[in-house]
């Protein structure tokens, strides 16, 4: 049997979770919503994170446009994902939600812009 104490990061509430594993099945306690349960199991089996960063922007009001992974990616890929993001230059105009780097590192998750930036 395995037991781990976690703090849920799904929302600002930060519930204290206890995840126990017995014969391959997981039980989460301490959560106050369904999403906490999902997070608890994921965190002890295959932790994932959403990455937010910026990309170089050409022809816009600012030299950077904010981006995010449109879903969580495996935690161990965070720095590789940052490197991929570094290699992309976006040209204005760009719309919020627009895919700027599809299927990053083969995860099936896209990197999308999070702010509409017009041409200057």
């Amino acid at each position: 049997m395995m037991k781990r104490e976690l703090i849920c990061i799904v929302c600002p509430q930060g519930c204290h979770l206890t995840v126990t594993e017995e014969n391959g099945s997981y039980k989460v306690t301490g959560n106050t919503c369904k999403r906490g349960e999902v997070y608890g199991v994921k965190e002890v089996t295959a932790p994932r994170r959403v990455i937010t960063s910026t990309m170089k922007l050409q022809g816009g009001r600012l030299p950077r446009v904010p981006v995010k992974t449109n879903g969580d990616i495996p935690k161990e890929l965070i720095f590789q994902c940052m490197e991929e993001i570094d290699h992309v230059t976006v040209t204005a105009p760009v719309k919020a939600g627009q895919v700027v780097l599809p299927n990053v590192l083969g995860t099936g998750v896209d990197v999308v812009a999070t702010r509409t930036m017009g041409m200057v």
Binding site: C11, P12, T52, T54, P66, T114
Partner: peptide, 22 residues
């Protein structure tokens, strides 16, 4: 504030700062 965690109460979804502003 390009990180996420905004809007869970008001929009019932997790947004980044720029998305919330927009």
């Amino acid at each position: 504030c390009i990180h996420n965690g905004f809007g869970l109460h008001y929009f019932k979804e997790e947004l980044t700062g720029p998305e919330y502003a927009q």
